[in-house]
Amino acid sequence: MMLRFKLNGEWIECEAEHNETLLDLLREKLGVKSVKRGCNVGECGACTVLLDGRPVNSCLLLAPLVEGRSVETLEGLRDKPIMRELIEAFVEDGAIQCGFCTPGMLISAYSLLSRNPKPSEGEVRRAIAGNLCRCTGYVNIVKAILDAAERLRGED
């Protein structure tokens, strides 16, 4: 089927299978590789993208369901001021670890800071509750998100 949707701000048309997920479409056909396949059942959050501005698991989203909607991934968000600050803080705070969960973490963190410029630690932890890290834990990730928020508020 022909599918038309907005990918990272630009309308695109592409061929998609009825039973294909957005995750497969992005990775295998559109070359969007920041979106990772982890559990494939909506538990790990490595495949998180923004759908109409809200984080969703692309492994649970059938490609035909994004017709007419907006999908954003790290490729399209990396130069936004909030994302730049997050990426810098992740690097400085050692929050990347193995890197596999990082794109999904960044999308969830971006969504949080877009709505809430001054989150508490609890709010940060709840915002990334759907993103699993299997390396060494969440301490540096939470710290990086809080640091990025602080810098964005100009309280460096």
Binding site: G42, G45, T48, L51, R54, P55, V56, N57, L60, L61, S108, S111, R126, A127, A129, G130, N131
Partner: peptide, 9 residues
């Protein structure tokens, strides 16, 4: 329920 990603869908 679920996670932010799940609650959004």
């Amino acid at each position: 329920m679920g996670s932010p990603q799940i609650r959004n869908r």
